[in-house]
Every structure is written in structure tokens, then in C-alpha cells.
Simulated scan of single mutants.
Amino acid sequence: MKPRLNRLFNPHSGRALDVAVDHGAFHEHAFIAGIEDMPATVATLVEAGPDAIQLTLGQAPLLQSIPGKQKPGLVLRTDIANVYGNPLESPLHTVHVPDAIEVAVKLDAVAVCVNLLDLPGHPEVREQCIRSILALRSEAERWGIPMMIEPLVMQTNSAGGGGYAVDGDTKKIVTLVRQARELGADLIKADPTDNLADYHLVVQAAADTPVLVRGGGRVDDRTLLERTKAVLDQGARGIVYGRNVIQHSNPAGITAALMAVVHENASVDDALALIEGAR
């Protein structure tokens, strides 16, 4: 494991909670609900104390300008895509930041994050992702920066919510996670499967590459915590949650609850009690 990852994973539990706050890069107004004031958002999260915060190159200095050794690590988003719009733009694209690894080194990031998108009818988007991953990996290896690949299996959003929605089909997720592993991922950020009992197959596909589970859209607290326990019990090494933290009425409380589940194996009921206790 690359040395920087020692600042991501808790030394006692071996797990991590990364709060994703990189939504503003995707040019969707709905995505910035709850994070309109980014300095305040970052300050709140630093106080809550997750293991890492995932930010873009434009917002990362808000975290790294805070003094002290104990603040969360930085995971740097390195690409931008337009696959969530309603209506969708044409052509679809994903673009990586050419100097992202240099920026990550300068900002003392613990890892970088890049998408591996699988969209029905658009293999060219996955090709763009693969080219980005290979280009970034070359520099990441040179500088010892861990690369988190985010394999996203998408489906057409028939509910009319705009763009593409997550496809939780186990076989599709396993196949794309395996490709992320083959491309040299140091970390894999993968969606939960529709059948949570299958998640050990995703972990198996990643072999010894740590799997962190995406949070996706907003769900109620009990559902979120139960899902978290289910994937951790099957071998996931942590979680990367965004909207379920930053759009919560009590971000500090839900962070405390998630940290208790991730690092202390707290029960769902005990974790729920922490949410109100952190107000």
C-alpha cells in the first residue's frame, strides 16, 4: 500500500470514511444543494472529523489552508463529465485535468479520484475514461499518488430524473470493478449492488485493492446505516458518501454515526442515537 494511504485508513479499524464534496464540478444545479457555501461546508466537515474529504482542484485549498495535522485527508477529483444533465447534452464527454497529479502533490492529497463510466450506447465515454486513467496513472505512479478509480455502471433514467441513473446489477458492477483493478487502481469506489448480499463478489473482483462504497442519492438514516453495515460485513474497507452527509439536516451528527459504524462496528440503533447527540 502506498504510504499516503496511511493517512486515509484508520490504523485501528483499517477502514475509511471519505465525504465527497466535488459535486459542483458536474454543472448541475441540483447537485450543489446543501453546499452552496463551500467555506462553511468544509469547515463543518473538518469539525465533524471524517477520515477524508473529496474535493476539486478549485475547492481543495479550502481544506488544505486549515492549519494543524489532524484535519481530514484530501482526496482530489481529477475529472469532469456531463452525464447527469436533464436533458442530456450532446456529445457526452468526460475530461481529466492534465496536471492533476502535480496539483495533488502540491496540495498534499492522500489520493486522487477518476471515473470509469459505463453508459448504455456510449462506449466512447468509457474509452475516454480509460485514456484518462492510463494518462493519470503514469504520473501517479511516478509521484507515489494513490489512484481511486470510480467504476460507475449507469442506466437510462426512465423515471425522468435527468441523465443516467445507477445500475445496481451485480454482474455489471463486478465486471467494471474487475476492469478498474486490471487498470491498476490503488482504491476502488464502487456502487452498492441492488442485492446487498452480493457485495462480497464486488470485493472479490477487486482482489486486494480496497473497495470503498458510494452512497448515491439521499436515503433515510436507518437505511443508510443498515446498508453501510451490510457492505462492511462483506469486506468493504470503507465508504464514500456525499449527499447523504452534506444534504443532511445535521452533517456532524450523521458523520459521527457513520464513523461509529465504520470504525467501532456500532449497531444501527446506537449510531442513530449519535445523530441527535452531535447537535
Rank of each mutant, 00 (worst) to 15 (best):
P3A: 01
R4V: 05
N6E: 15
N6Q: 13
F9S: 10
N10P: 05
S13K: 01
D18P: 01
G24Q: 09
H29W: 05
F31Y: 13
A40L: 09
T41S: 11
T41M: 08
T41Y: 05
V42M: 04
V42R: 10
V46W: 07
A48C: 09
P50S: 12
D51I: 02
Q54D: 15
Q54L: 15
L55P: 14
L57R: 09
L62A: 12
L62P: 12
S65L: 00
G73V: 00
G73K: 04
R77M: 11
A81T: 09
Y84G: 08
P87L: 01
H96N: 11
E102L: 06
V103S: 10
A104T: 03
V105N: 10
L107A: 10
H122V: 01
Q128L: 11
Q128W: 03
Q128H: 11
C129D: 14
I133D: 12
R137D: 09
S138N: 06
A140C: 03
L152N: 12
Q155P: 01
Q155I: 05
S158C: 09
G161Y: 02
D169M: 01
V174E: 12
L176F: 02
A180K: 00
E182R: 13
E182P: 00
G184F: 05
A185N: 04
D194K: 08
N195W: 01
D198T: 04
V202C: 05
V203P: 10
Q204E: 15
D208V: 01
P210M: 00
R214W: 02
R214D: 05
G215W: 03
G215L: 03
R218M: 13
V219W: 04
L225N: 11
R227P: 03
T228E: 08
K229S: 15
V231T: 11
V240D: 15
R243S: 07
V245L: 12
N250D: 15
A257L: 06
L258F: 08
L258I: 11
V261L: 02
V262C: 04
E264R: 13
N265C: 01
V268C: 10
A271G: 08
A271M: 05
A273D: 14
L274N: 11
I275N: 03
E276N: 13
E276F: 00
